[in-house]
Structure formats: structure tokens, C-alpha cells
Simulated assay, not measured.
Amino acid sequence: MSLPQPVPPSWKDLGKSSNDLLGKDFPLNGVALEVKTATPSNVSFKVGGNRDTKSTLIGGDIEAKFFNKPHGLVFTQTWTTSNVLKTQVEIDNQIAKGVKLDLQTSLTPDTGSKTALFTTTYKQPGLHTRAFLDIFKGPTFTADTVVGRDGFLVGAEASYNVTDAKITKYAAAIGYSAPEYAVTLHGLGNLTTFAASYYHRVNSDVEAGAKAVYDTRSSTAGAVALEVGTKVYLDSAAFLKAKINNSGILALGYTQNLRPGVRANFGLALDTQRLNDTTSSVAAHKVGASFTFEG
């Protein structure tokens, strides 16, 4: 008798452990601030802002989210400094167990530009499938499915343009996931770009990962982009991350929980091939920070 199968990750979360290790907690392009608060009446607020070092532009948004857990409803409203109004409505486990409905819309009053994306998600042991309908673009119908059994994962994605009556993109992935490690291979962009990722939790204090990407359309024949990184927990309140790619870019990230609800994150990127270039090395290096306050 086989063991009960867990719900596999969604298509977008295949290789998530490696992607998070190599992509998160490296604030390199300026200074960001995020403040989160919650009320007793099931409403939470989030205010975020960032200043880009290169453009010196400051952007931000304010978000309000209402939760109605008995009815599986989440309503989110966001207003950005670019004057974009975003609305999201989520209904989970109401129509049937494992079914989630999600409508995301955006409106730019200045230009009249608008988007609407309707998503249906269905989850059950061994299966995670989603369907998207982009109402104003195409309209385009996109579906993805991940099937999992005993740690092995197989997934696929395809988009269909209703107006043109043709498939506009497709992709596939295979992988294996265990508590201590995960391996994933993606074929993206109509199987023109291939990515392999690896994640390993060495022990309770150390994580390691790597990712290689090969683009068959690249002008550099046979070139593979490679990135490796690690995460080390210094104590229960701080960790250090480091990664380097085959272009010689070394990135460091340090995160410290100053107190409950207050977190500081600092990042530094160095072009190791231009350390002694006194004329242009300043532009090659990046530094940044982010601060999060949560009540």
C-alpha cells in the first residue's frame, strides 16, 4: 500500500528553494522600507517604498487586505505612486475542497490602461493545476499542471491565444524534492532555454544551491550561465548569504532581526574582474539595504 501523497508545489514554485536561496535577501539597487500592521478586525496594511540608486527615483505603494476566514475570502486593494490601482479577490475552498478562485485587476486612470487576470487553482494529493484567463490581452488562456509521486515531480505549462487560435508558448519541467535537497530541470521559452537548479540543506545552519541556464538563442554559442550560493545561520536572529556567478559578480547579503517585528537587510555586489579598475569600478559595484517593520 502506497503512502499518502502530499500536494506538489505549483508550477511557479518548482525550484523555489534554489531560487529563493540565490535571489532573495540581496538588496543591491538602493534602499527599501516596508511597514506592516494588522488590526483586530481582520484587516492588514502594508506600506512599502524604495529609492533606486541608479535612477534616484522613489517609488512605493500602500496595500490594504481584508480577511474573512469563515468564507475563505481575501480582498486586497493596492495604490502605487505610479497611480496604478490594483484589486485582488480570492475565494478558497468554497466551491469545492481544493478549489481556489482568484481575480486580479489593475487600472491606470491617467492612461485608461487596464488588466484583468482570472485564475482557477485545483489542489489535491499528487496534483496541483492552475488555469489563467487574461481577459484584455488576447484573450489568452494559460494552464499549468504539476504531478507528484514519492518526491518525483513532472510539470508542464502552455498558453493559447483565443483570437489567433494558436499556442503562443509552452514549457516543461521535471524534478525531485526531498526534505534535505531538491533538483529541478526546466525547459522554458518553447524549449529554447534550459535551466537546472539544485538545493541542499547541509545541516540546520548551512544551505547551499546552484543554478545553470543555457539559452540556445544566445549569440555566444554553448555559453552556460552558472550561479552558486550558500546561506549560513550565524544565530537564531541573523544569517549571511553569498553567491557568485561565472561573470565574476560576487554578492553578499546580511540579515539581522533587531527585535521581534524589526528586520534589517544589507547587500553588496562586487565585480571581481574590475576590482582594480579605478576609472569605472564604482559603477560596477552595488550596495543596498532594506528595513522591515511588522506590528
Rank of each mutant, 00 (worst) to 15 (best):
D13R: 10
G267Y: 05
A283N: 10
Y122T: 14
D150Q: 13
F26P: 07
T111P: 11
E63Q: 15
D110M: 04
N265H: 09
I58A: 02
S247M: 10
P139Q: 05
L14H: 01
Q5P: 15
F118S: 01
L252Q: 08
P9R: 04
W11I: 09
V74L: 12
V47C: 09
K114D: 01
V282R: 01
T105D: 00
V7F: 15
D61L: 08
I249Q: 10
I58H: 00
A172H: 07
T220W: 03
A283M: 04
V154P: 08
T53H: 04
F194S: 05
G98I: 11
Y198R: 04
L127H: 13
T216N: 14
A116G: 09
S281L: 03
D25K: 05
P40R: 03
L101Q: 13
A283K: 04
E34H: 04
N50W: 05
D110V: 04
I95N: 03
P70T: 00
A284V: 00
Y233D: 06
L107C: 02
R51G: 11
R130N: 08
D52C: 06
K65H: 02
A212I: 04
D20G: 03
H128M: 06
Y198G: 07
G253C: 05
V146P: 09
R130K: 14
A289G: 14
N203T: 05
Y176G: 02
E34K: 10
L107V: 03
V31A: 01
A143M: 11
Y160A: 07
F291R: 01
F136A: 07
Y176A: 02
S280K: 12
H285E: 01
R274F: 00
D25Q: 13
N29L: 13
A283Q: 09
D215K: 14
L270T: 00
T119N: 11
L268W: 10
D13Q: 13
H71N: 12
L188R: 14
A225F: 13
A242Y: 12
T121H: 06
H186M: 10
L268T: 00
T76K: 14
S236Y: 11
F26R: 04
V47N: 03
A242F: 12
T129L: 13
R217T: 15
F239R: 02
V232F: 15
L33P: 05
T56R: 13
T53F: 07
I167F: 14
P40Y: 05
A283P: 02
L85E: 08
T278C: 00
V99A: 12
F239G: 05
L107D: 03
L28K: 10
R51H: 05
L234V: 14
L3M: 12
V183R: 01
A208T: 15
L127P: 13
F26A: 04
T216R: 15
G288D: 01
T140W: 02
Y214R: 02
D25V: 10
A116W: 06
L85V: 10
S106E: 08
A283S: 09
A116S: 08
Y233M: 08
Y199R: 06
N68T: 03
G126R: 12
D205M: 12
L270Q: 04
A195Q: 14
A165V: 12
T193G: 07
A269F: 09
G187C: 11
T184G: 00
I95Q: 06
V43S: 02
N190L: 08
P260Q: 07
L270M: 06
